[in-house]
Design a protein around this nucleic acid. Structure first.
Lengths: 404, 404
DNA sequence: ATACTTTGTCAATTTACTTGACAATATGAA
DNA sequence: TTCATATTGTCAAGTAAATTGACAAAGTAT
């Protein structure tokens, strides 16, 4: 996050960064600490913080631990300043999160969804889900400050649309953000779901405060979100981190993108399901053989079986982990992150998946990069992207507020 | 380059960015343009520029092209403000560049060097080369403002040393920068050579002004330098861009790093030489068979033969290009750069190398990323790293000056 | 000529920050 | 307890980097 001057005018920089430090410093931060972090005097911080308190954005919390002098007064966001909504649009589901101003979760819903319908139909469906949820909470749309939205394709963030998304071909160049802002009469921030997962885990999950973080989202597809200095890195056209279509085995299965042996065809949710169905059909001894209807085993079934000790399922997960490891090893070599967070549905597997990943990375990556990187599964689980969407919504609000 | 506020105090930010805009805007920049870029008023720019002119850092150049009103006065660096030296330490050679304050080249030398000697001996050798060169130019060390140094290993830039460098094992944790500053009584900036190549090509070469740039240096080893928003990206431990040890073929040749089939063993200078020697030994028809002594064909010999139409040599170069393409395709997917510059000795091959690279990237990378990326060979040639070293030296000087 | 633009500068004002002081708390030693 | 020392937070006065609003200088278009 830590704000960039290309976005914010230099005049308001210290005010904006103070807000970020208050938002993301674990255990809160005092005025004196702010002064040290910003390299300005305590007096200057006093006037900045007075501004923030007067605008009801920040409030004083309890006193902090002493260090041999007067106790510091810790500062925190004022949860009552307003509400945010985060929407995580997936290929088959859409998740909603309602939070207070400090990102405290007030409500959470997940609904089924089909990304392959037209954008018009899809966004109207999402609109109905959202209004239904808010009605149930006795909330009006106008009480929401900003809505953050995540979507499984490369986002061109200036224009608020997706460009050449492999998973959602019909949505190309559709003005998603403009449509939503028109529909809801609210500011909307639109981002790629893996980017948001990275942001969510960085802010409140497994990667709190890590400088450079990569979040690998393994769902139907596979994508990575990259955070550099706590800021989302999008690349030239918003498709940085699209590792799902990296070739891992040239003689591998055919992918929807036209190539053979993409990571997605080897370690994605569908790939895992396919391999399980093949195993059952070829008559191997596995508890997955009893799953009905025949040939409809899902990735989730494989994960369940693996957890219950099924050797065939475990081998499938281990293979998927190895393929993921190959891609992550090359990411670690190129990007040298402080942390890699593995998320998406598959991440619930925990060590069964992490162990082969860690092993391959250890073997294939440069020593100095391996020593620096922590590899773990997501802490927020299916919430990471919608949580990231809320953080981006909060960002949008604070950016706008700071400018005036 | 474009300066980051984490390095520079917010008070001096506009002054520092003005300098960068004056340095790197092709065709110069006027006060009015500065005001627009910085989003401050022309009055404010006037006082900033007056400061810079009074310090002899900037001067007024000729008038710019009119746009229907008074002609703008273009600003440029004052070449006479002082001199910089750039040093590019390679595995087998060391290159020196002496420039004026505006990075205009005054002198250039390349000497043979052996990185496998101890750091003490190596740095003393470099010291002798430098003093010899300056004597020849009737220059005293004290007339140099800053010396920029590039080195073929991952640099920990705070401490000014290399960590676990595959190419220069004896140098690990040796305080290189401290030693040089002590020896020369001058400020020294130490960076990885591929990073500097990227910076050099970005500032004055094939990638002028590109937002996100990757520079691939193919020499004895293979490394990449990454520029994000015109700033060097080092990663957590300074080893971002170390793609030489990415596994390309698991059944490939053994690498010095202990793994099999690293990119370096397939497309590096040594790999190319090895394949040529093998071809000659196996009796294939090639003009390289006449090279003496037997079994001592170098990568340069292969390049020469390929350029003169030798089919065996051309096939070897094409294969190397294909392997490089595989690594670059995965870099393009992950990093989504605006431009990839291929440099190092091998880059002189031009299209013979670029064609297979472009073809593989086209085939293996995401469409939206491929459309955005330009792939070209270096313009500065063997100068790119030493030029980048000078740019970093200039950076160091300007950072320091701005703070006081 | 006249109207219209754009660039660069000046004096007066605003504002973000510093300086230097001081009160309010805390710890630790005599 | 009492005193020295340290840290946090605030206040009034001063500094300096910006703004505002004016204007001259230098160009183009009609």
């Amino acid at each position: 996050m830590l704000t960039n001057l290309s976005d914010i005018h230099s005049r308001y920089y210290n005010k904006r960064v103070s807000l970020d430090l208050i938002r993301f410093t674990p255990g809160g931060i005092s005025r004196a600490d702010l002064a040290r972090s910003l390299a300005i005097t305590r007096s200057a911080v006093t006037t900045i913080v007075n501004d923030l308190i007067e605008a009801s954005i920040v409030r004083e919390a309890e006193d902090g631990p002493t260090t041999g002098g007067r106790r510091p007064i810790l500062l925190e966001l004022n949860p009552q300043r307003g509400k945010f909504v985060g929407v995580d649009i997936g290929a088959t589901h859409v998740g909603f999160l309602v939070t207070d101003f400090a990102c405290g979760v007030l409500h959470e819903v997940e609904k089924s969804f089909d990304i392959s319908v037209s954008p018009d139909l899809g966004l109207n469906q999402i609109d109905r889900y959202l209004r239904e949820m808010l009605t149930g909470l006795s909330l009006d749309l106008s009480e929401i400050l900003v809505i953050g939205v995540g979507i499984p394709g490369p986002v061109e963030s200036d224009q608020g649309l997706v460009i050449s998304p492999p998973l959602m071909p019909g949505w190309e160049n559709y003005p998603i953000r403009a449509h939503l802002e028109e529909m809801w009469k609210l500011p909307v921030s639109l981002n790629n779901d893996a980017e948001l997962g990275a942001l969510g885990e960085w802010a409140y999950g497994a990667g709190r405060g890590e400088r450079h973080l990569a979040y690998i989202k393994v769902g139907s597809g596979i994508g990575a979100g990259l955070l550099i200095d706590g800021k989302i890195f999008r690349g030239a056209t918003g498709s940085a981190g699209e590792i799902g279509h990296t070739t891992i085995r040239e003689d591998g299965p055919l992918c929807t993108c036209g190539n053979h042996g993409c990571l997605e065809t080897l370690a994605g949710g569908k790939a895992i399901a396919n391999r399980a169905n093949e195993a059952v059909q070829s008559g191997r001894r596995t508890m997955m053989a009893s799953i009905e209807p025949v040939n409809h085993i899902t990735a989730r079934d494989v994960a369940d079986a693996a957890r219950r000790g099924d050797l065939v399922a475990q081998q499938i997960m281990k293979d998927a982990g190895t393929y993921l490891g190959i891609a992550i090893a090359s990411l670690v070599n190129l990007f040298n992150p402080n942390m890699v967070v593995v998320g998406g549905g598959i991440a619930q597997m925990g060590d069964l998946l992490l162990q082969p990943i860690r092993q391959v990375v250890q073997q294939r990556s440069l020593r100095s990069s391996v020593q620096a990187v922590r590899i773990n599964t997501s802490v927020l689980g299916r919430r990471s992207s919608s949580m990231g969407a809320v953080v981006q919504a909060q960002n949008t609000f604070l950016d706008h507020w700071t400018k005036e």
